[in-house]
Design a protein around this nucleic acid. Structure first.
Lengths: 334, 334
DNA sequence: TTGAAAGCGCTAACAT
DNA sequence: ATGTTAGCGCTTTCAA
């Protein structure tokens, strides 16, 4: 004899209705607290839910109602803390409103972005959140065709498809240069990671050079490293740069990770900061403020960006570009 | 006159079938490359899909087939890079297998964890991934009732509900202590963050103390900081500890973030590392290896944990505990 | 206030 | 190889 421990099929709304002695629609109304029902019906339903351990099936709910309450994030990286910060900002708001976050990672590859966006749309999300404005034609096309909201994050220098939340990287770059010039530095260098992939870093660099030109100055040296940003890359990058272009008095880095690497290079090699060499980063990470000399940087509104992005989507805000600005941290490395 | 730009209702499989002049099931078979169909049918279907810009609705597909291909991550934090690392490891594997990652963040609060797990189950995920073994009774109960796979991550010291992937924090703590003792340090201190919340850090500390006891030694001082780990907290923590317990020759930190803060404190205050004071962290973060003196630490298999966790779920592996071990980094701070 | 019933868009038998 | 059809578990009219 075979005892059939058949996988207990999960409890359905119909079973709850039966157990409570009411109709399915009543259960649905009670559970979503929508429409009208008697206190008595409510009680019986909740009681049955409790007894049976019913967990609503949102897959079914979504299919029936055509509103998924799923928000898709297609981000370049999880290693660069910038993106987890945005997710964190959005996460709180989404959760409060019973939305669910879904994500995938492009590794800064826009072809992959297209593939992933397309895969995401199969879940019929309420919105798709992307980094920046640079996407393939294909990505934009399928996004437009989908009819779902699109939020482009962490940039305002470009044309938004729908919603955009962030700050101007170009202006951040300019502000960084202006600060260094104001401080009296004249032989400025740059250490950055791959600018073609990280277009926002590219825009900062553009802004930085623009400000130099405006001041009748120009970059005295640059070192562009392949691959993503990292502390190690910043360290190696500064080393290279100083060998090739001696006599620099300040270096602008593509972000704080890179700048921290530069700082450590200076520490290791007896380069006095900022007396011998000034350093300037970007992002205003906490760790940059915890080193012996707080890093001069630009604090970016990462968490706030995620938060506002989620709010705009939830409130069905009209298409718009929200510039959250940034804040210059003078620090002690410049 | 009002032009009605009626929201174009999205294309359905039925429309594709009609356009291709085949039945719905043929479209379904072609699209999932499952079952049999003629090359000709295939071509007509793909053609129609292309023409109409059809994007399959996975909500509907999931409901019909009872396999969601959704994997839910309920993690303590996104700020602690450990968890993004795990997500990254899992993400690649999941994507290759057409699974989708969903996540929410508990902030190390197990009540919240319960709420979030419950909310996740409404999406009928294939698996739920959690940090560690410490969960409320309620969490375990709803998880068991759900019948979905459960993976507990980054710990092996405890009883697994189903699958577990990680390493032994307790052994990591012991190994850390043994290393410091072997190096000849005798007056050992500890700087940690909130151990009740981060139970894995707590287990490391336990293991550390055990090893000291075994060696007939004991902790010469400790500083436990409220809240989550951070560089700044480590810095302030070491400062406190050294004031209260002078004469220490080595300090063990709850993780690398904390240890980095300690290192910076030493740098700022002319404390020679390791001559005056040795430092030991945990996690083996890249940044710890990029500072002037590579941090002595334990490299943990974070990405590998995510990867294996995803693989086990996808392959429907039987319940098991996979210990991926860890690697001691001697570094230069001890 | 409540229940019956018609889908939502797809998959999976089951015929053919 | 392919089409027909019965659901998947809900939400939402629509009557009652």
């Amino acid at each position: 004899m075979v005892i059939d421990f058949k996988q207990r099929t999960t409890v359905t709304l119909a079973e709850v209705a039966a157990a409570a002695g009411v109709g399915e629609s009543t259960v649905s109304r009670v559970l979503r607290n929508h429409g009208s029902f008697s206190p008595k019906a409510r009680e019986r339903v909740l009681d049955a839910v409790e007894r049976l351990g019913y967990v609503p099936n949102r897959i079914a709910g979504t299919l029936a109602s055509a509103g998924s309450r799923l928000v898709a994030f297609v981000i370049p990286s999880l290693t660069n803390i910038v993106f987890p910060d945005v997710l964190r900002g959005a996460g709180g708001v989404l959760e409060e409103n019973h939305y669910q976050a879904v994500f995938s990672v492009t590794d800064y590859d826009s072809e992959r972005e297209e593939t992933l966006v397309s895969a995401m749309l199969a879940w019929r999300p309420t919105a798709v959140m992307l980094a920046g404005f640079e996407h393939t034609e294909g990505t934009l096309k399928i996004l437009r065709a989908s009819g779902c909201r699109v939020v482009e994050l962490l940039d305002t220098d470009g044309t938004a498809a729908d919603l955009a939340v962030g700050f101007s990287n170009r202006q951040a770059g300019r502000a960084s240069a202006e600060f260094l010039l104001r401080r009296g530095y004249r032989r400025l260098g740059y250490v950055g990671h791959d600018l073609d992939l990280d277009t926002r870093a590219g825009k900062r660099f553009t802004g930085f050079c623009e400000a130099l030109n405006l001041a009748g100055s120009r970059l005295a040296g640059r070192e562009i490293r392949a691959g993503a940003s990292s502390v190690e890359s910043g360290r190696a990058g500064l080393k290279q740069l100083l060998e090739r272009a001696p006599g620099l008095d300040a270096v602008y880095f593509s972000n704080d990770d890179m700048a921290l690497g530069g700082y450590f290079h200076c520490l290791s090699n007896g380069i006095a900061v900022p007396a011998d060499l000034a350093l300037f980063g970007h992002n205003g990470l906490d760790i940059g403020q915890a080193i012996p000399q707080p890093l001069a940087s630009i604090r970016t509104p990462r968490v706030a960006t995620g938060k506002l992005a989620a709010e705009l989507v939830i409130n069905e805000a009209p298409p718009q570009v929200a510039d959250l600005g940034f804040e210059l941290i003078e620090g002690a490395t410049a």
